[in-house]
Design a binder for these strands. Structure first.
Length: 890
RNA sequence: UGGCACGUAGCUCAGUGGCAGAGCGCCGCCUUGACACGGCGGAGGUCGGCGGUUCGAAACCGCCCGUGCCAACCA
């Protein structure tokens, strides 16, 4: 070797540890990436170079589980690919701390209750409640002070969450972090409300609406789920007012009998036709109620005729509206029956005295208790509306039926008349559906969930919640001279004034003294539905209404990753907001990750008690290994948390470590890639890169991982590397070219494969990259290195035959099989053998034969043409292997 | 009740019209100089069932069965 030739940069394998010390390396790289600003967003670069992620803000009360890690890993894989393609990545993290879970935690932790009427107390601080304090009544504090306590508690959680994300290797730009309760987000949410108000998309109305009696708050359609419950049909005999006859209705809610306001049956039902226009008389309470026909009544169900109450379900509300029925609200906000006076104007009765006697047994009871009471009373013949015996006919018949519940609630919803704020959506279904079509959904079929939900929308979006920890609705109401609020003319906070808390801040044009005074103003005590803020995450990142230039850079986002169970909430509301504010789509692509299942294929969830937390898994298997498992799942596919898969990932990263050690410890002169086998390997590598690039562009990361892993194992370590390792080590002046070609191809192979793996296995790929490539390529982090492309293969001649690589591998495998059959090690020297194959195959073998023979350690060989053998098939004849050496020379 | 997805080797899953695949597990062998946290070789499948389209179906169509999810079913 002449001394003026340039040597490749190599490592001394002795300087590397025997095994990859993952935990140490993960920490080291996390620190360096942070110090280097590897994942920092650059606001000076143009939009078309920027890739924007609308990150899901995890709820910070509670803890992250492996399902979070799963879907966030998918996002990170996409992001790392795009970064290597040169895109300027905007990848923030958000914390969702609004909502009921945080509220409950703070109430318990400090033993406090929020009362929004109380004034803010500056410099307020509390210690966690002691046992002694807990025995006293909870301390009542202002909303702003309550929010500050929530902040304190959530900050600890945020730190813990950030630690998990860092150890997962998420390439988040932590300088862009937001929290849904912080000033910025409250301002954005209130700006959103103001914009919707100005555009006429929001309204408030006092009307019956879905209500959870435990949380004592209104709900939106998306908060509600059906649960199958066992109930019972009660057949109850009603009288006909002024006549001596009766009929039987069927109901599952007999306790609402005192709230009965009407009776209805199908207009074509011959049994009841003659009753329409007359009045029925309820048993026990003897209230006359109108009997009217309704198409909605099902003659097949129950007795075919039913009572309409205030309010058993949403159909009752419809009838109440359509028929102009009376309103007899018995169920209070707390779910207990309120006191009423039969014989009064709104509760007429033909027997007020007995009605009040009966009803006195209901007052203060909850629904379940009231049902028991009425079940007994209905057995009393004295209560009959017809005088023909007990009102209850027969025994209640058990029935399974769907009942609406708040998804976080324990008792069925009631319909209660309250004043709430709404966003008008029902008139915008078509536009919402069109926006859904403009967004690309991955996998595509998830779009159906959005479409079904949107088409099935029955109610406008109720956005007011009777809670404290959240974003206040920025509204005050003028009070007239009698002190009554003018809800039709609310005062909305001015843009520059936001964020405001109307319970402590004062509207423009008023002074604080005029709060709750006649002629003054009154603040809205409610807060927004948590989705009202969460639906703005793209705008929160882009600083909509605050920084127009930044908004133009970052909106709409490129991707929205999320899970499928919140398509009807988070995705739906975000699309709605972008539509209402700017007639835009909020993002170009939605990436839906599946659920993580436990080893028994059950959904992993807190309520099921089968959750796994990420850190122990990372400690045990390494972050790369856990990410490998996550990345191996396609979008939308539910996936079991399987230790077997983590182990495969760990094995892969070990293999990369070892292969890297081998390849980069080879020494040789810098030399072009010229040998046939080397060129055919590089041609294969080039195909891989092209396929993977297409996969990533189409969000098929799992396919890219599978392809890369399979190539790495099947075409690199198990074959190519074994076939050329002898040539790569061959000393001697005559070997400089072939040796240099082998080393160059090995190094290019490793280089490209590391970069193919980098989005999935950020730590091990960075580690191996740092040994040589970082300096050699002038890119200190692989995660900022360019994604491989044609420039990596420039100047390398294609192989003379596309088949060279396969032929070499097939021939070598045939020799290996003969060794396996002879039960000798693969490394055993082969004294002689005959390679039989078709003449064509032998011709193809010729340019790579020397590498095959070297790998087989074969000293003497013969070739035998066998036209009958299929092309590419090799048979080994007359193989003779050296006897086992006593001991290896080294 | 409707919609969507899924059903392929013992397990976990790839495979969108052309010879049924991978990893794990299993069996046998090999300590070779990157790696025993390794390597080589092997066994193992009627692709849920039935019918259809096609020269050809695991794949496309229809029906059925099973599993999961979503939505509905509230008198």
């Amino acid at each position: 070797m002449s001394s003026d030739n340039q040597r490749v940069r190599s490592i001394d394998p002795e300087t590397l540890p025997k095994h990859f010390a993952a935990i140490e390396a993960e920490k080291r790289w996390d620190d360096r990436w942070e110090a280097w600003g590897t994942y920092r967003y650059d606001p000076t670069r143009p939009r078309d170079e920027t890739f924007v992620v609308d990150t899901p803000p995890p709820t910070v009360s509670g803890s992250l589980h492996i399902g979070h890690l799963f879907s966030y890993s998918h996002t990170d894989t996409v992001v790392r690919f795009q970064r290597m393609r040169g895109r300027n990545i905007f990848y923030p993290m958000g914390w969702d701390d609004n909502g009921v879970p945080t509220e409950r935690r703070v109430q318990n932790y400090f033993h406090v209750r929020c009362d929004p009427r109380i004034a803010y107390e500056p410099n307020f601080a509390l210690e966690p409640a002691t046992a002694k304090i807990r025995k006293q009544r909870p301390r009542e504090i202002s909303r702003q002070n309550f929010i500050e306590l929530c902040h304190g508690v959530t900050e600890e959680d945020e730190q813990a969450f950030m630690e998990v994300w860092r150890r997962t290797g998420l390439s988040v730009d932590w300088t862009q972090t937001y929290a849904t309760i912080d000033d910025h987000c409250r301002r954005l949410a209130q700006l959103s409300f103001r914009d919707l108000f100005e555009k006429g998309h929001v309204y408030n109305v006092d009307a019956p609406f879905m209500w959870d009696v435990d949380f004592q708050m209104a709900l939106s359609q998306a908060d509600v789920e059906d649960r199958l419950q066992t109930g019972a049909f009660y057949d109850i005999e009603f009288g006909v007012d002024g006549q001596d006859r009766g009929f039987a209705i069927s109901t599952t809610r007999p306790e609402l009998l005192p709230a009965c306001v009407g009776v209805t049956a199908h207009p074509d039902d011959d049994r009841y036709k003659n009753l329409f226009g007359k009045h029925a008389l309820t048993p026990l309470f003897r209230v006359p109620v109108p009997i009217f026909p309704s198409e909605v009544a099902d003659p097949e169900k129950g007795t075919g005729i039913l009572m309409v109450c205030t309010f058993g379900d949403s159909t009752d509300v419809d009838w109440w509206r359509q028929e102009g029925l009376a309103l007899r609200q018995l169920i209070g906000h707390d779910g207990r029956l309120v006191s009423v006076e039969f014989g009064s104007e709104n509760f007429p009765s033909r027997a007020a005295e007995s009605a009040n006697r009966y009803y006195s047994e209901f007052v203060g009871k909850n629904v379940a208790q009231a049902r028991k009471v009425i079940a007994e009373l209905l057995r009393d013949p004295a209560g009959s509306a017809t005088g023909k015996g007990a009102p209850l006919l027969g025994e209640p018949r058990p029935v399974e039926h769907a009942v609406k519940f708040y998804e976080k609630g324990d008792r069925p919803l009631e319909f209660v008349q309250t004043r709430q704020w709404f966003v008008r959506l029902l008139d915008k279904k078509q536009a919402l559906l069109e926006k859904g079509e403009q967004i690309r959904w991955h996998p595509d079929f998830m779009k159906v969930r959005y479409r079904d939900w949107t088409e099935g929308l029955k109610l406008d979006w109720c956005i007011s919640r009777q809670r404290y920890f959240g974003v206040p609705i920025p509204v005050w109401y003028p009070l007239d001279d009698d002190g009554n609020p003018d809800y039709a003319n609310p005062i909305v906070g001015e843009r520059e004034q936001l964020p405001v808390d109307p319970m402590s801040d004062v509207p423009h044009g008023y002074t604080a003294e005029r709060r709750d005074q006649p002629g003054g103003f009154s603040g809205e005590p409610d807060i927004f539905d948590t989705w009202f803020t969460s639906s703005l995450t793209p705008q929160i990142g882009s600083h909509w209404e605050i920084d127009d230039a930044r908004h133009a850079q970052l909106f709409p986002a490129d991707i929205r990753p999320q899970s499928h169970e919140i398509i009807r909430t988070w995705a739906f509301y975000t699309i709605a907001k972008a539509l209402l504010h700017e007639d835009q789509i909020p993002w170009k692509n939605v990436l839906i990750s599946g659920w993580v299942l436990d080893p028994d294929r059950k959904k992993m969830s807190k309520s099921a008690g089968n959750v796994q937390t990420p850190l122990p898994l990372i400690d045990q298997f390494t972050a790369d290994a856990v990410r490998y498992w996550a990345s191996s799942a396609r979008l939308g596919t539910d996936t079991a948390a399987d230790p077997k898969i983590f182990k495969i990932g760990k094995r892969l990263s070990t293999k990369l470590f070892n292969a890297g050690k081998f390849v980069l410890s080879q020494t040789a002169d810098v030399h072009p890639i010229v040998n046939e086998l080397d060129r055919s390997f590089i041609a294969r590598l080039r195909d891989l890169v092209e396929r993977n690039t297409r996969c990533f562009e189409d969000f098929q990361h799992a396919v890219a991982l599978q392809e890369t892993e399979s190539f790495f194992w099947t075409h690199f370590t198990d074959t190519y590397l074994e076939l050329v390792k002898h040539r790569a080590r061959a000393e001697g002046a005559g070997n400089a070219s072939s040796r240099g070609s082998a080393v160059a191809a090995l190094r290019l192979g490793l280089d490209v494969l590391l970069r193919q793996f980098a989005p999935f296995l950020p730590y091990i790929s960075e580690e191996v990259w740092s040994w040589v490539y970082a300096e050699e390529r002038g890119e200190r982090s692989i995660h900022r290195a360019p994604w491989p492309g044609s420039e990596d293969f420039r100047g390398i001649e294609p192989p003379s035959s596309d088949a060279s690589f396969d032929v070499a591998v097939a021939c070598w495998a045939a020799i290996n099989k003969s060794k396996a059959d002879a039960e000798v090690s693969m490394g055993r020297e082969t004294l002689r053998l005959t390679i039989a194959a078709s003449p064509k195959s032998l011709a193809l073998l010729e340019p790579v034969l020397s590498d095959v023979l070297a790998a087989a350690r074969c000293e003497n060989h013969a070739l035998a043409g066998r036209p009958e053998l299929e092309e590419g098939v090799f048979e080994i004849l007359d193989a003779e292997f050296a006897p086992k050496a006593e001991k290896a020379p080294r």
